[in-house]
Design a binder for these strands. Structure first.
Lengths: 204, 204, 204, 204
DNA sequence: CATGAATGAGGATTCATTCAT
DNA sequence: AATGAATGAATCCTCATTCAT
């Protein structure tokens, strides 16, 4: 049907905007990317952009939504599924780390934006980024509390621990995505981080 | 003397700009703060601002310099002084944490800007912020390596550990400074962080 | 077609800017003319100007290019064509003068700017104006040297002569274009200038 | 007397401003030179400048006045004195050229400003420059008319001739002062110009 | 649906000039 | 007389967004 051809074309253009903008965000940063950049790089007309997105922010929201979807499918549900079985807690955490890694790899651009833009001020963008971290912290916190309840983690201020953990991971991911550090040994590093998280650094 | 009266007034105005801008940075974020905001809030004339600072960036530099000075006096030299004596490593780290805390309290505004703002893109500001973290990571790394050499820390990828540590602390400080969390129990939380850093979370 | 209607309107606006700016340059001089003046006089919005030209300079370049094109077609090639035939040298020079005059008449505005504005300092504008004169001097010099080679002009420092000639003509054109002097007897005056150039003033 | 010491100091400061500004005008051009430049280079206070001159323009006027004084003493009166005696007309013109040259050498800076800033627009500055040329043209015209009356110059449109002559000289002086061309052979070139003015270029 | 010309608010910076000390 | 801090008008330029075609 003509209808669906049109629909397809429309979706195509939408995707074009999304991928192009993702690249621009990566290259110049979110704030430095202007609508002018986007229409220049996509080759679309100025007004066309506004047919698909009302503002730059909306593109970012879209990307973020995709990330959330992946996270929901791959991580959020993780704790429910996996915490039941016999695997050691350590291995479970490593497996979780691998899952996160996989998702971050698939959503490099958004993740890079998220880790490069700590959210302080109060633009819509900042609130989104902040929301992401809050969520992450809450998830981590939930896991830690579960660990405490099930006797695998010594009692701690779970909020504090989750903040430290989330912040630490963020710096790690930031370093990886912006400088390429650890690119070829990420799985190994994940294990080291989990090891550190479990045992600390002290010589015993 | 007449001379000093003028000088004093000038210094007063300089301070006015600095404190007002610090507040604005805090309220709206560094990037969202415009020169127009600054002159409106200080009540100064358009041109007066440029009499004291050539650009917004310069105000931030000023603040940062003061922080660096404090850090140099209070922390950098710390490792040299303290790592010699008999105190337990744990206590040493806690003491270091307290020192950092004290300095961060005295420089709340700058620190808040540092933990709240993008360090990804490449404006002069971003480079400054990034430089600060790089420095912090390097200092942490040096300490960790010393710990490994002296047999107090089990061999680890020191770069990785320092990234995680710095990132974790940053999130902690960010939370404290923007939401007021832990305001009245910071010393306690520092101890918990050091404890976590040393022993991890695993039940043994 | 719709397409061409839009195109036409755009061209119209472009022309509006060009003519309005030409008038302003004439009235207030190049340097005294601001972008604000241009948008006020054209009735356009602030940003519209930048849709057509990136800077004031670009308008001038546009005008200058048109002049260069005419000069290339009408004068530069002149010496090649005409110096071959039998016409007396005197008549040839007069003919060249007429040609120049015709071109200057068609490009009054640019020419007026060129003869009325500083060529000393080193802005982009000044370099353009200076480049124009340098070119003129070089062309004049080439012609004089050809005249010397072919035995029609007594040996002289050709550079010096071309400087004097170019400067003299410029003052003449300046007077004509700013005060209207000689407006109705330009051809006659051209002949007098050529006569003076050939024979000097001395009574013999 | 105290009075005269003060007076002397005042005069000194005035001179300081004049020479410093002359240098700046030469280096950066008249328009590009700001009051800020002047007070920086003189080391005077902002307000002090305004005790001596109300505006930049006034400094230029001062310089111009000095040039006028020299011209009045050395050239204007020239025609009156010299045109009486037996010297050949040619030699008289050369002598006049030498005199002009001497004066221009002594007032390099002002002269450079005058020849670098053809006056088109209508600022006070432009009017001054324009006035200078008008005067020069009038003087030249007077001389030419006298030459015609006394039978040494063939009848010509004296206004036209004086425009051409003045413009030519200006270009010559401009070249000399801005590029240094002819610096070491100026007297020689003056003679060549007079020769050209008298006899033209034609081979006879 | 698509286009792209037009808009004007918003932000940075410079500079001549004044005026209290 | 000298000072130099303060002023604010003037200028340039960018950019998100609208709207007629």
């Amino acid at each position: 049907m003509k209808r669906s051809v049109r629909e397809a074309k429309k979706q195509e253009k939408r995707t074009l905007i999304l991928t192009t903008t993702a690249r621009l965000f990566k290259e110049k940063g979110y704030h430095a990317t202007t609508i002018a950049d986007i229409i220049r790089e996509t080759g679309l007309a100025r007004g066309t952009f506004y047919l698909y997105f009302r503002e730059k922010q909306e593109i970012f929201n879209e990307m973020l939504k995709a990330l959330y979807t992946s996270l929901t499918a791959g991580v959020w549900q993780f704790e429910i599924e996996k915490f039941q079985d016999r695997e050691s807690f350590y291995n479970q955490l490593v497996a979780l780390g691998y899952r996160l890694l996989k998702i971050f790899r698939e959503h490099r651009e958004v993740v890079q934006i998220l880790v490069s833009n700590p959210a302080g001020a109060d633009s819509a963008f900042d609130r989104q980024v902040h929301g992401f971290y809050t969520l992450l912290v809450e998830v981590a916190r939930g896991m830690i509390e579960r660990g405490i309840e099930t006797g695998r983690i010594v009692p701690h201020d779970s909020k504090l621990l989750s903040l430290i953990l989330t912040g630490g991971l963020r710096e790690f991911v930031f370093q990886w995505l912006t400088t390429g550090l650890y690119e070829d040994e990420l799985e190994d590093k994940i294990e080291q981080i989990v090891f550190f998280f479990m045992r600390g650094v002290e010589v015993r």
